[in-house]
Design a protein around this nucleic acid. Structure first.
Lengths: 217, 217
DNA sequence: TTAAGATTTGTTGTATACTAGTTTGTGAAA
DNA sequence: TTTCACAAACTAGTATACAACAAATCTTAA
């Protein structure tokens, strides 16, 4: 039915979108039948998915969709925080006109998105787009891609997190501020803003209480 | 002859130590015969090695030991630089007595190591040990391990780099300074020191001229 | 001699049978 | 009814045969 690449992306999507819930067993034979492909290439796919933390392999027992690991989420946030501080300071005052326009364009789309209903998935994409743009403008697209490989837990965390309350407006405004600080070269304000922006509520217990079924214990 | 894990570590070692030179072809059948194991588990190993950039897979053509990618080296250095600045600032003034002793112990071993001859490999280990200790003391061992997965290029780069001139004393002294700054809580001096420490000579052309056979074009 | 095409050889990609460990369910005995 | 044992039905791990493709080489004709 499909190529390896396509199957992998589809599985990734189903996991990230939580259609496949953490803990769900996905056996080689089942996938093999579903996608009409023999077990060998399916094994390759599962191997890679496990390497990128989408799936946990329990030898001779089975493969399950990984539970969200909050520890890993916190560590990734710290990593991004440190990196983006550096990146934003590098960009501050040095941003090309083309760059300015790109950021403003994304910000405008985010504003549009908020007025729509039930568009949190789309907003999430635009959120990523904004941060990715910062990386790329600073010549650090390489590192953005690198981080993406460890983002399974963080992405699912954010998805659930955004559902729980209407944070979208706040996030958009913070993006706006970030762009302003870069353009106006107010680099002394960057650290605090970024810290709040990325770390928002990771420490609160709300998440663990309401989504315990998805979480690694 | 050996388990998958052992085979993987052995291959990793041979690649990192440059016994297996970049560009060398390593076919599944050859490995299969060498380790007396069938192709399927060997394929698993190669897949993982390629994921960690030890090996490049060319579909239907073959697998080769990856060339050192200087771009990737530079990006990793930037990443480590940003992270370690943050980590050191976090540690400054907050280091436990046990931590102080640990760092001093490593520094002492480095000093010993320098007096020996032909011990650059050992010194490299101690260099890692020092930086890893900083990560772990800050509760960021997770991120240290994460970075390690992208370190193939960087490790080989450093290995060659250290051969070219006697940098060991300088490195050791900088480590000493780093520890002092942390203990004395002189965090304003950290940025510049770390920048120099990690970035040393990455931009020089010496490397590209002398080791072109190892380098990705 | 040269150039083009067929052949051979070497590579990974895939399918499938077989091995071995784990879990689960069933039935008999206490 | 409960508990234990054993078999059957899963699972992934491995071996191996074969297909598909790429590249180099050899052959043959111009």
């Amino acid at each position: 039915m499909a190529s390896k690449e396509e199957i992998m992306n589809q599985l990734k999507n189903e996991i990230l979108s939580l259609q496949l819930k953490p803990g769900t067993m996905i056996s080689e034979t089942a996938l093999s039948e579903r996608f009409e492909l023999s077990r060998t290439p399916i094994r390759d796919i599962l191997k890679q998915l496990s390497q990128e933390n989408y799936v946990d392999i329990y030898p001779k027992k089975g493969n399950i969709v990984s539970y969200i690991d909050l520890e890993s989420v916190e560590q990734i946030i710290y990593l991004r925080s440190a990196l983006e501080k550096e990146i934003m300071k590098g960009l501050a005052g040095n941003l090309s006109l083309k760059g300015v326009h790109e950021l403003k364009h994304i910000l405008a789309m985010q504003k549009d998105c908020i007025s729509q209903e039930d568009e949190s998935d789309h907003f999430l994409q635009l959120d990523d787009a904004f941060h990715e743009a910062l990386f790329v403008l600073a010549g650090r697209g390489f590192l953005w891609n690198l981080i993406q490989q460890f983002n399974v837990h963080y992405i699912r965390y954010r998805k659930l997190h955004m559902l729980q309350q209407d944070k979208l407006t706040e996030i958009q405004k913070e993006h706006q501020l970030m762009a302003d600080y870069i353009i106006q070269d107010e680099r002394d304000k960057i650290d605090d803003l970024l810290h709040h922006h990325l770390r928002a509520d990771i420490d609160s217990l709300y998440f663990q209480e309401h989504f315990s079924e998805y979480i690694k214990k």
